[in-house]
Design a protein around this nucleic acid. Structure first.
Lengths: 129, 129
DNA sequence: TAGTGTCTACTACACAGGTAGTAGGTACGC
DNA sequence: GCGTACCTACTACCTGTGTAGTAGACACTA
């Protein structure tokens, strides 16, 4: 429980694992945009630290390269991220919404989607007594 | 522009200034929940650093105590926070919405509020020509 | 005006995250 | 079997953040 907070770079690394599955250090590296790609050993160091924190683990070996896989799920990490984020707003979505609408980041389509999700959820939780 | 990212504690300090207006170190300190209240000098140090970063400034003196006021607005800080946050989701709100709905953090009321805001915005931006 | 309590300025330190180099082991092609 | 290229393990260093102590200045009270 209480998975550790993941930093920006850690999240980008996890993203590779979540999206492309178990990968070697080099594979992770190569999924970074060629422009701002850190050094091989930078990724390696981060991965080693993340292994210590148990957010990923070595799954197997290919040749002499370790293949790492995510231990923490994308969902769990996202939940954690959202919780932390909402903490700044006292847990209330209202100011966030307002800001999103004002900056044009929240569109009509987004709202409709949310509504659909809400309805789906309701019929799932209300029905079973 | 590009106001610096504010850390958790920095945000809590700014929150006092935003909510209660210009304050002294002691006043800021006293607005922290008595339980987990840092040392006086901890707040002082943070405020000094924030002064350097120009997110707040000394407004005046009362006795020999400095009174600090926010330079960065709550809105600006929130915008920055939201942008950073959305960065993790590729700027798309969809996964965030889904997560919020699933964890019950996004209620029907929130959605309705968002809709109202959207409508208000539309009549403001569409109308003028 | 003298004393006391408060405030500032400065210093210090630990931990996390980001960055990367070096040394030495290993696998694989030829 | 050897050499080259790649991988790991270890070390190092800097910055930001959170934390706080100490010394000395200052203001207000009695």
């Amino acid at each position: 429980m209480t998975l550790p907070r993941l930093s920006k770079l850690e999240l980008r690394i996890m993203d590779v694992l979540w999206t492309h599955g178990a990968s070697s250090v080099r594979e992770v590296l190569e999924h970074f945009p060629a422009k701002k790609r850190p050094a091989y050993t930078t990724i390696q160091t981060m991965i080693t630290r993340m292994e210590t924190k148990k957010v990923l683990r070595r799954a197997r070996k290919t040749g002499n390269a370790n293949i790492f896989e995510a231990v923490v799920s994308r969902d769990a990490a996202q939940r954690r991220l959202i919780d932390d984020f909402l903490g700044f707003f006292g847990g209330s979505l209202q100011p966030v919404m307002a800001q999103l609408v004002e900056t044009g980041k929240l569109t009509r389509a987004d709202v409709q989607e949310a509504e659909k999700l809400l309805r789906a959820l309701e019929s799932k939780t209300d029905r079973p007594k």
